[in-house]
């Protein structure tokens, strides 16, 4: 009997699968951003409740850091363009979303040996989502160098802390749910 083995693609390569999964993730993120754009967080500067944020960390965690970054960055840009007709105005927020997806994608590379069961994978996904949010959204402080009216206090109290709290909750709740829902399908698809 002849067997054929195929090496797993590097997590840093941009394959067709990376492109398509990232595009679908970005489209889901953009559409749900558009449909829920009205739920603002009180006492924050244009921070919205976005449960769909969990899709970014999920795509990063499941399909790799590149797919995660593209989902967050492109999804947020296109979603802002759909909702506010201003996809580029606050580009650093899009980069922050992308970085969160990227960081979430690093966890399976670091902790592959510890994810032996579906439960441990779900817990790791939740932790990855929260850590990715805390780290990725540090990038929004770039605003202080870009917009003159932004100060550290305003950025910290009215932007960073609200968005990290809201998105951490979304990531901690949604990412493991999506991971648990995706795993059986992944086995069926043979991926």
């Amino acid at each position: 009997m002849t067997t054929m083995t195929q090496a797993a693609p590097s997590p840093w390569s941009i394959t067709t699968r990376t492109i398509v999964y990232a595009a679908i993730g970005a489209a889901i993120y953009a559409v749900l951003n558009y449909l829920s754009f009205g739920i603002q967080v009180p006492w924050s500067q244009e921070v919205s409740i976005r449960p769909q944020y969990g899709v970014v960390t999920f795509v990063g965690f499941t399909f790799g850091p590149i797919a995660g970054f593209l989902t967050g960055f492109v999804g947020n840009t296109v979603g802002d363009q759909l909702a506010y007709q201003d996809g580029f105005g606050y580009w650093w927020w899009s980069v922050a979303n992308g970085l969160a997806g990227f960081v979430a994608g690093l966890f399976p590379l670091w902790m592959a040996s510890r994810m032996t069961s579906a439960g441990s994978k779900a817990v790791t996904a939740a932790v990855a989502g929260v850590v990715a949010t805390v780290v990725g959204f540090l990038f929004i402080f770039v605003e202080m160098a870009i917009l003159p009216e932004s100060t550290f206090d305003v950025m910290l109290t009215l932007n960073y802390i609200p968005v990290v709290i809201v998105n951490s909750i979304a990531a901690a709740v949604v990412t493991p749910i999506l991971v648990l829902a995706w795993e059986p399908l992944r086995d069926q698809l043979g991926r």
């Binding site: 398509v20 990232a22 595009a23 679908i24 970005a26 489209a27 889901i28 593209l70 492109v74 999804g75």
Partner: peptide, 13 residues
């Protein structure tokens, strides 16, 4: 990838 995202939006919606 961006092209696909834009094309997927109506479908996803």
């Amino acid at each position: 990838m961006v092209d696909l995202t834009v094309r997927f939006i109506p479908t996803i919606s």
